[in-house]
Protein backbone atom coordinates (compact mmCIF):
# COMPACT_ATOMS: atom_id res chain seq x y z
CA UNK A 1 0.00 0.00 0.00
CA UNK A 2 1.16 3.48 -0.84
CA UNK A 3 1.66 5.38 2.39
CA UNK A 4 0.71 8.95 1.64
CA UNK A 5 1.78 10.21 5.03
CA UNK A 6 5.35 9.17 4.47
CA UNK A 7 5.67 12.06 2.07
CA UNK A 8 3.80 14.40 4.32
CA UNK A 9 6.72 16.63 5.34
CA UNK A 10 7.78 17.39 1.82
CA UNK A 11 4.26 18.48 0.93
CA UNK A 12 3.25 20.18 4.11
CA UNK A 13 6.31 22.29 4.68
CA UNK A 14 5.40 24.86 7.29
CA UNK A 15 1.87 23.64 7.86
CA UNK A 16 0.41 25.36 4.85
CA UNK A 17 0.04 22.80 2.08
CA UNK A 18 -3.35 21.31 1.32
CA UNK A 19 -3.87 17.90 2.82
CA UNK A 20 -7.28 17.40 1.31
CA UNK A 21 -8.54 19.06 -1.84
CA UNK A 22 -12.15 18.60 -2.84
CA UNK A 23 -13.26 19.85 -6.23
CA UNK A 24 -16.77 19.75 -7.73
CA UNK A 25 -17.83 16.87 -5.54
CA UNK A 26 -21.24 15.44 -6.40
CA UNK A 27 -23.07 12.61 -4.67
CA UNK A 28 -26.43 10.90 -4.95
CA UNK A 29 -28.75 8.90 -2.74
CA UNK A 30 -30.37 6.71 -5.37
CA UNK A 31 -31.76 9.19 -7.87
CA UNK A 32 -31.75 12.21 -5.59
CA UNK A 33 -28.72 14.44 -5.70
CA UNK A 34 -27.36 15.28 -2.27
CA UNK A 35 -24.19 17.16 -3.26
CA UNK A 36 -24.11 19.49 -6.25
CA UNK A 37 -20.63 20.89 -6.37
CA UNK A 38 -18.61 20.92 -3.18
CA UNK A 39 -15.18 22.57 -3.31
CA UNK A 40 -13.05 22.89 -0.20
CA UNK A 41 -9.50 22.58 1.07
CA UNK A 42 -8.18 21.35 4.36
CA UNK A 43 -4.56 21.99 5.38
CA UNK A 44 -2.41 19.86 7.57
CA UNK A 45 -3.13 20.25 11.26
CA UNK A 46 -6.22 22.38 10.77
CA UNK A 47 -9.58 22.04 12.46
CA UNK A 48 -12.21 22.90 9.88
CA UNK A 49 -15.95 22.88 10.45
CA UNK A 50 -18.73 22.34 7.99
CA UNK A 51 -21.72 24.38 9.08
CA UNK A 52 -25.20 24.23 7.67
CA UNK A 53 -28.76 23.18 8.27
CA UNK A 54 -30.12 19.66 8.39
CA UNK A 55 -30.04 18.09 4.97
CA UNK A 56 -27.62 20.67 3.55
CA UNK A 57 -25.08 17.97 2.64
CA UNK A 58 -22.56 18.16 5.51
CA UNK A 59 -22.76 14.51 6.52
CA UNK A 60 -22.88 13.48 2.89
CA UNK A 61 -19.63 15.35 2.30
CA UNK A 62 -17.94 13.36 5.07
CA UNK A 63 -19.40 10.10 3.78
CA UNK A 64 -18.20 10.94 0.29
CA UNK A 65 -14.66 11.57 1.55
CA UNK A 66 -14.86 8.20 3.30
CA UNK A 67 -16.13 6.46 0.16
CA UNK A 68 -19.36 5.46 1.83
CA UNK A 69 -21.59 6.95 -0.87
CA UNK A 70 -22.31 4.52 -3.65
CA UNK A 71 -22.56 7.19 -6.31
CA UNK A 72 -20.21 10.15 -6.30
CA UNK A 73 -18.27 12.21 -8.83
CA UNK A 74 -15.74 15.01 -8.94
CA UNK A 75 -12.40 14.92 -7.21
CA UNK A 76 -11.21 14.30 -3.66
CA UNK A 77 -7.42 14.36 -3.33
CA UNK A 78 -5.49 13.39 -0.26
CA UNK A 79 -1.93 14.74 -0.67
CA UNK A 80 -2.59 14.72 -4.37
CA UNK A 81 -3.85 11.16 -4.50
CA UNK A 82 -7.34 10.73 -5.93
CA UNK A 83 -9.83 9.01 -3.59
CA UNK A 84 -12.82 8.89 -5.96
CA UNK A 85 -12.96 5.30 -7.16
CA UNK A 86 -11.23 3.94 -4.05
CA UNK A 87 -13.15 1.46 -1.91
CA UNK A 88 -14.10 2.72 1.50
CA UNK A 89 -11.81 0.23 3.29
CA UNK A 90 -8.88 1.36 1.16
CA UNK A 91 -9.57 5.01 2.01
CA UNK A 92 -9.55 4.22 5.72
CA UNK A 93 -6.18 2.53 5.29
CA UNK A 94 -4.77 5.75 3.88
CA UNK A 95 -5.24 7.27 7.31
CA UNK A 96 -8.71 8.78 7.43
CA UNK A 97 -11.12 7.89 10.25
CA UNK A 98 -14.81 8.60 10.53
CA UNK A 99 -17.12 8.99 13.51
CA UNK A 100 -20.73 8.83 12.27
CA UNK A 101 -23.59 10.99 13.41
CA UNK A 102 -25.51 8.11 14.97
CA UNK A 103 -22.24 7.13 16.71
CA UNK A 104 -22.31 3.64 15.20
CA UNK A 105 -21.76 1.76 18.42
CA UNK A 106 -22.35 -1.98 17.88
CA UNK A 107 -24.84 -3.52 20.27
CA UNK A 108 -23.55 -7.06 19.87
CA UNK A 109 -20.02 -5.98 20.85
CA UNK A 110 -18.76 -5.06 24.31
CA UNK A 111 -17.25 -1.66 24.97
CA UNK A 112 -13.78 -3.20 24.76
CA UNK A 113 -14.60 -4.88 21.44
CA UNK A 114 -16.06 -1.65 20.08
CA UNK A 115 -12.96 0.20 21.16
CA UNK A 116 -10.53 -2.14 19.48
CA UNK A 117 -12.65 -2.83 16.40
CA UNK A 118 -11.15 -0.34 13.93
CA UNK A 119 -7.79 -1.73 12.87
CA UNK A 120 -4.60 0.28 13.39
CA UNK A 121 -3.77 1.81 10.03
CA UNK A 122 -0.66 3.79 10.96
CA UNK A 123 1.78 4.24 13.81
CA UNK A 124 1.27 7.11 16.17
CA UNK A 125 -2.28 6.43 17.28
CA UNK A 126 -3.27 6.80 20.90
CA UNK A 127 -2.77 3.90 23.26
CA UNK A 128 -5.77 2.61 25.12
CA UNK A 129 -4.36 4.24 28.26
CA UNK A 130 -4.30 7.64 26.60
CA UNK A 131 -7.89 7.14 25.45
CA UNK A 132 -8.95 6.25 29.00
CA UNK A 133 -7.22 9.42 30.21
CA UNK A 134 -9.38 11.40 27.80
CA UNK A 135 -12.55 9.44 28.60
CA UNK A 136 -12.23 7.99 32.12
CA UNK A 137 -15.83 6.70 32.03
CA UNK A 138 -14.92 4.06 29.47
CA UNK A 139 -12.33 2.37 31.62
CA UNK A 140 -14.80 0.96 34.13
CA UNK A 141 -17.30 -0.22 31.57
CA UNK A 142 -15.17 -2.27 29.24
CA UNK A 143 -17.24 -5.43 29.53
CA UNK A 144 -20.60 -3.73 29.15
CA UNK A 145 -22.56 -4.12 25.94
CA UNK A 146 -21.76 -1.21 23.64
CA UNK A 147 -25.23 0.24 23.45
CA UNK A 148 -25.84 -0.07 27.20
CA UNK A 149 -23.73 3.07 27.67
CA UNK A 150 -25.32 6.48 28.02
CA UNK A 151 -25.48 8.70 24.94
CA UNK A 152 -22.48 10.73 26.09
CA UNK A 153 -20.43 7.63 26.84
CA UNK A 154 -21.32 6.18 23.46
CA UNK A 155 -20.07 9.35 21.82
CA UNK A 156 -16.81 9.11 23.78
CA UNK A 157 -16.45 5.50 22.70
CA UNK A 158 -17.17 6.42 19.09
CA UNK A 159 -14.47 9.10 19.12
CA UNK A 160 -12.06 7.09 21.27
CA UNK A 161 -12.03 4.06 19.02
CA UNK A 162 -10.91 5.98 15.94
CA UNK A 163 -8.10 7.72 17.84
CA UNK A 164 -6.43 4.33 18.30
CA UNK A 165 -6.07 3.79 14.59
CA UNK A 166 -3.35 6.33 13.93
CA UNK A 167 -5.45 8.10 11.30
CA UNK A 168 -4.23 11.67 10.68
CA UNK A 169 -7.46 13.03 9.29
CA UNK A 170 -10.42 12.70 11.65
CA UNK A 171 -13.98 13.22 10.39
CA UNK A 172 -16.45 13.94 13.18
CA UNK A 173 -20.14 14.11 12.31
CA UNK A 174 -22.06 16.21 14.86
CA UNK A 175 -20.28 14.83 17.90
CA UNK A 176 -22.15 17.11 20.33
CA UNK A 177 -25.67 16.49 19.08
CA UNK A 178 -28.10 15.90 21.91
CA UNK A 179 -25.48 15.83 24.66
CA UNK A 180 -25.39 17.58 28.03
CA UNK A 181 -23.28 20.79 28.21
CA UNK A 182 -20.65 19.20 30.46
CA UNK A 183 -20.06 16.43 27.93
CA UNK A 184 -20.02 18.90 25.05
CA UNK A 185 -17.22 20.74 26.86
CA UNK A 186 -15.35 17.50 27.39
CA UNK A 187 -15.58 16.70 23.70
CA UNK A 188 -14.40 20.23 22.93
CA UNK A 189 -11.33 19.64 25.10
CA UNK A 190 -10.65 16.38 23.29
CA UNK A 191 -10.77 18.07 19.90
CA UNK A 192 -8.29 20.69 21.10
CA UNK A 193 -6.02 17.87 22.30
CA UNK A 194 -6.19 16.27 18.86
CA UNK A 195 -5.14 19.56 17.33
CA UNK A 196 -2.20 19.84 19.74
CA UNK A 197 -1.13 16.40 18.57
CA UNK A 198 -1.04 17.71 15.04
CA UNK A 199 -4.10 15.81 13.76
CA UNK A 200 -6.36 17.31 11.16
CA UNK A 201 -10.06 17.41 11.97
CA UNK A 202 -13.14 18.04 9.86
CA UNK A 203 -16.05 18.70 12.15
CA UNK A 204 -19.66 18.81 11.06
CA UNK A 205 -21.64 21.10 13.34
CA UNK A 206 -24.92 22.93 13.52
CA UNK A 207 -23.84 24.89 16.59
CA UNK A 208 -21.31 27.52 15.49
CA UNK A 209 -20.92 28.81 19.04
CA UNK A 210 -19.33 25.49 19.86
CA UNK A 211 -17.44 25.37 16.57
CA UNK A 212 -15.87 28.80 16.94
CA UNK A 213 -14.18 27.78 20.18
CA UNK A 214 -12.15 25.12 18.32
CA UNK A 215 -11.92 25.69 14.62
CA UNK A 216 -9.45 27.48 12.40
CA UNK A 217 -11.83 27.90 9.52
CA UNK A 218 -15.47 27.34 8.67
CA UNK A 219 -17.30 26.37 5.50
CA UNK A 220 -21.04 26.91 5.17
CA UNK A 221 -22.91 24.32 3.12
CA UNK A 222 -26.34 24.80 1.64
CA UNK A 223 -28.23 22.66 -0.88
CA UNK A 224 -25.16 20.60 -1.63
CA UNK A 225 -22.91 23.59 -2.36
CA UNK A 226 -20.32 25.51 -0.36
CA UNK A 227 -21.91 28.95 -0.11
CA UNK A 228 -19.48 30.71 2.20
CA UNK A 229 -16.23 30.28 4.05
CA UNK A 230 -14.40 32.27 6.69
CA UNK A 231 -11.55 32.05 9.13
CA UNK A 232 -12.36 31.84 12.78
CA UNK A 233 -11.19 35.42 13.25
CA UNK A 234 -13.91 36.56 10.84
CA UNK A 235 -16.71 34.90 12.77
CA UNK A 236 -17.49 37.73 15.23
CA UNK A 237 -18.08 40.13 12.36
CA UNK A 238 -20.31 37.64 10.57
CA UNK A 239 -22.54 36.41 13.37
CA UNK A 240 -25.76 37.66 11.84
CA UNK A 241 -24.94 36.14 8.49
CA UNK A 242 -24.07 32.79 10.06
CA UNK A 243 -27.24 32.84 12.14
CA UNK A 244 -29.20 33.41 8.95
CA UNK A 245 -27.45 30.50 7.19
CA UNK A 246 -28.15 28.19 10.08
CA UNK A 247 -31.62 29.46 10.80
CA UNK A 248 -30.95 30.06 14.47
Amino acid sequence: MHDVFATQTTHAGAGGAAMLEIRNLEAWYGESRALRSICLDVRDGEVVTLLGRNGAGKSTTLKSIMGMMRKRAGSIKLYGEELIGCASNAIARKGIAFCPENRGIFSSLTVAENLTLPPIVRDGGMSEEEIFDLFPNLRERLNTGGTKLSGGEQQMLAIGRILRTGARLILLDEPTEGLAPAIVQQIGRVIRRLRERGLTVILVEQNFRFAETLADRHYVIENGNVVDSMTNAEVPANRDKLAAYLGV
Binding site: M68, N89, S108, L109, T116
Partner: peptide, 20 residues
Amino acid sequence: AYLRAATEDPILVRAFGINV
Protein backbone atom coordinates in the same frame (compact mmCIF):
# COMPACT_ATOMS: atom_id res chain seq x y z
CA ALA B 1 -16.17 -9.09 16.43
CA TYR B 2 -15.70 -7.88 12.85
CA LEU B 3 -18.40 -10.28 11.74
CA ARG B 4 -20.87 -9.24 14.40
CA ALA B 5 -20.19 -5.59 13.71
CA ALA B 6 -20.56 -6.11 9.96
CA THR B 7 -23.94 -7.71 10.60
CA GLU B 8 -25.10 -4.51 12.24
CA ASP B 9 -23.54 -1.93 9.93
CA PRO B 10 -21.41 -3.27 7.08
CA ILE B 11 -20.87 0.17 5.55
CA LEU B 12 -19.36 1.60 8.73
CA VAL B 13 -17.20 -1.45 9.37
CA ARG B 14 -15.88 -1.09 5.86
CA ALA B 15 -15.16 2.58 6.50
CA PHE B 16 -12.93 1.48 9.39
CA GLY B 17 -10.67 -0.20 6.86
CA ILE B 18 -11.98 -3.74 6.91
CA ASN B 19 -12.54 -5.49 3.62
CA VAL B 20 -16.13 -6.46 4.31
